[in-house]
Design a protein around this nucleic acid. Sequence first.
DNA 1: GATAGGTACTTGCGTGTGCAACGAACCATA
DNA 2: TATGGTTCGTTGCACACGCAAGTACCTATC
Lengths: 155, 155
Amino acid sequence: MTTKWLSQAEQASWRNYILTAHDLAAALEADLAVHDLTMGDYEVLVWLSEAEDNRMRMCDLAQSLQLSPSGLTRRLDGMVKAGWVERASCAQDRRVMYAHLTTTGRAKMEAAAPTHVDSVRRHVLDPLGAEGVAQLGEIFGRIREHLLELELTRV
Amino acid sequence: MTTKWLSQAEQASWRNYILTAHDLAAALEADLAVHDLTMGDYEVLVWLSEAEDNRMRMCDLAQSLQLSPSGLTRRLDGMVKAGWVERASCAQDRRVMYAHLTTTGRAKMEAAAPTHVDSVRRHVLDPLGAEGVAQLGEIFGRIREHLLELELTRV
DNA sequence: GATAGGTACTTGCGTGTGCAACGAACCATA
DNA sequence: TATGGTTCGTTGCACACGCAAGTACCTATC
């Protein structure tokens, strides 16, 4: 515990981040809502569309989405009902279930992607410019490294 | 809609942000848990402790916390039960309720603050350095400005 | 090949949240 | 002073999520 409090500048930066991150997420969510999609569902579509054979094991997908196993089970329930995803069992390991993107799901994703990309561009990339975007990646990359590092020493 | 997809660099920066923000929030939450506090409760304590007379109107507090009115009502329910906050009515305007920090609540906040400050320092400020922290503030300040701007034109 | 330990997914339960509806109180205008 | 519109807070409802427990299955060891 080096110093008890944050400096004025530190405080200001940190609050900027906290406040903005919340509103930014809300803005992206709102833009996606015209497709009747949540960010959560959209991310599932994206991950599956980028995966080999358009499918992923539940556990891998949950980790990619930073979601608990039960959370993913229920999110998929909705997406299966919507027809965007199918469950498929695995012959090699009968414990695992694949989440498989349907053609309907792919179409949904392709319809929504431009909206979302545009949203990210408008809200984040354009205001920052190339340099700012690079800094953003650099900053959170560094935080990420430290998080993983601290996590390792804890175990 | 300038370009349909993000460039490699844009994609990487953006994903760094998405993934890290989630884990960072979880890390801060975990550090605060040793005081049996959530980030949500902690933020209430901080806002009230910085407010005049250690109290705020519910509607103002909800806005500060980026919380819906009903969300704040229920969060306060728990904090009142814990003895950290009291509700007080307002003589001038009998619609409003004040959330008032108790001495117990202040003690709770002062006990937890060093832990949280240290947590922010370890996870964010130290890895970034003064320059990185300034960039962080700058970046989210700019995003914030654009968000507000877009919101105004929408109305 | 039996048994112990680990892994993958699901289900029950509790929690935190937003939206919509509501009652109470305020305020502006007639 | 009556009235219509607005604001403040709470409550009913729905939903998304995590944790813990349970089930089915795999794998290593004897």
